[in-house]
């Protein structure tokens, strides 16, 4: 069983990472990655929605019939998004103002929908929640990475305003890596989003290719000996 969870974790975080391999949830991952903090906040909001919807759909999987499932998935995720929207408005108001339109738009994010359709509507409670957790973490990882790359090149900072948006405890991770006027503005503007995502997908393919080659070499050695 623990082996299953390891596969779920590896799949969710890397092999079928929502953004880098499946190209799902592109809108928030482009719009909300002008800084690492925004990306992290957006990722966490989506993570909560994915876990909650996976939990609910898995709980009710026996009563949801095939014909009406899409409508039920949509309503379930709309309700959970409303809850997250209100909770963020109350407790993380600064972050809520930055993310703005993209919190309600989690409803039409394909990622929670894809997990409901292909996983949690068929699986028991625990694996569904674990799968939701790792899919969400993979999404958060992708958004934070994209945000970090764009922020470092674009404005020379990393996790700027984290204390303002996420709470004073995050003051320690704010840093400035490049001097004030070294930033390349285009990376923060819309074209930078497309460019960074394109290059990060190439980087992921490169890493996959390397590890595949290493695995082949490792399996080739014993057969020679």
């Amino acid at each position: 069983m623990s082996n299953d969870f390891k596969t779920l974790a590896k799949d969710g975080l890397w092999n079928r990472n929502g953004v880098f391999s499946m190209m799902l949830g592109l809108c928030p991952s482009m719009a909300m990655t002008t800084s690492a903090t925004n990306g992290f906040g957006m990722g966490m909001a989506t993570l909560v929605v994915i876990i909650a919807t996976s939990f609910l759909v898995s709980l009710f999987r026996k009563v949801i019939t095939q014909e009406v499932r899409i409508a039920i998935f949509v309503v379930i995720s709309a309700v959970m998004v409303t809850v997250v929207d209100m909770a963020m408005n109350a407790w993380l108001h600064e972050l809520y103002k930055v993310l703005g339109l993209f919190i309600p738009l989690i409803v039409v994010n394909c990622l929670p929908m894809a997990r409901m359709e292909s996983f949690s509507s068929k699986q028991p409670l625990l694996p569904s929640v674990i799968d939701g957790l790792f899919t969400g973490l993979g999404f958060t990882f992708a958004l934070t990475l994209m945000g970090a790359v764009r922020e470092v090149i674009g404005s020379g900072t990393l996790f700027a305003d984290a204390s303002l948006l996420l709470g004073p405890a995050f003051k320690v991770i704010e840093m400035r890596l490049l001097p004030e006027d070294m930033g390349v503005l285009i990376m923060i503007l819309p074209p930078g989003a497309f460019l960074v995502l394109g290059l990060l997908i190439v980087a992921k393919r490169l890493i996959d290719q390397r590890s595949e080659r290493r695995a082949q070499q490792a399996s080739a050695v014993p057969s020679l000996a």
Partner: peptide
């Protein structure tokens, strides 16, 4: 090879976004 498919499309989209700026 590594750029084929999605990455090159995204880079083209980036140039298009630049034009629309």
């Amino acid at each position: 090879g590594l750029f084929s498919g999605a990455p090159i499309a995204l880079i083209v989209a980036s140039l298009l976004a630049m034009a629309f700026m």
